[in-house]
Amino acid sequence: MTQSFVLRAEQRGFNRIVSSGATASYVGGHPDAFVTRWSSFNFHDYQEGRPGFGRIRVFGDETFNSPGCSYSMHRHHNFIICAFVLAGKLMHLNTLGNVEELRPGDFYVFSAGSGGFHEELNMQSEPMQALYLWMLPDRLLLPPSYGSARFDPAAGNNRITTLIGSSDDAALSMPQDAKVSRLVSSTPGTYRYAMKSRAHGVYAFVIEGEMRCDAALLGRRDSKAVWDADEVVCQTGTGTTDVLFVETIM
């Protein structure tokens, strides 16, 4: 039987992490910079929500405020870390040797595997907004990897575009039975998102606008997870709707 939950924007965890005091080594850009993070799932100090969904462990809706605001260079293992830039410019640096400026529409997949450091940095006055997605990998201690690509909303308008996955049309892949897609819609439409199997679930996050997701009406930054189902039926309206879908083995 189909199962689901709806997570409203304001029901997510919220943290404001300053670049001074105890968190100065975590968040760079002292004294004025700060990160705001809305967490869909339990992460760091936010532990009152859900632990994750399928192989998703982190889904952060984050803003880096003030020039120099960053997560300072730090190490990861195993997690597949993805970022989707929504506004501003993100400078990503990692110890695989990548230094890259990502703009709205750009996204990356950094699989930390057997170990890799990264820094996430906003060098501009304009706030940088990004979605951060962390997935468990299908193997521990894989060789670390990094790749980036661009989603062009004009080219992908009014259809669900695969960004990350194992199919040929995906710009990037990740070492997990998972797929990330994006829908930007500007006219009323019905989109049927078919799951790979009934053992897969999908987490739909509304970046902008609103849509009906099966019976639920979702507004900006609302989200819904559906599993034990064959498909999710999404209906958009006349305004612009921007949605990220993360499908994962459950």
């Binding site: 595997g113 057997s114 468990l136 990998p137 193997r139 521990l140 201690l141 894989l142």
Partner: peptide, 15 residues
Amino acid sequence: LRFEMVEIAYAPGQP
């Protein structure tokens, strides 16, 4: 307490 038990196999050649 913020560790999770996982049943994930190692990549070839690891650990």
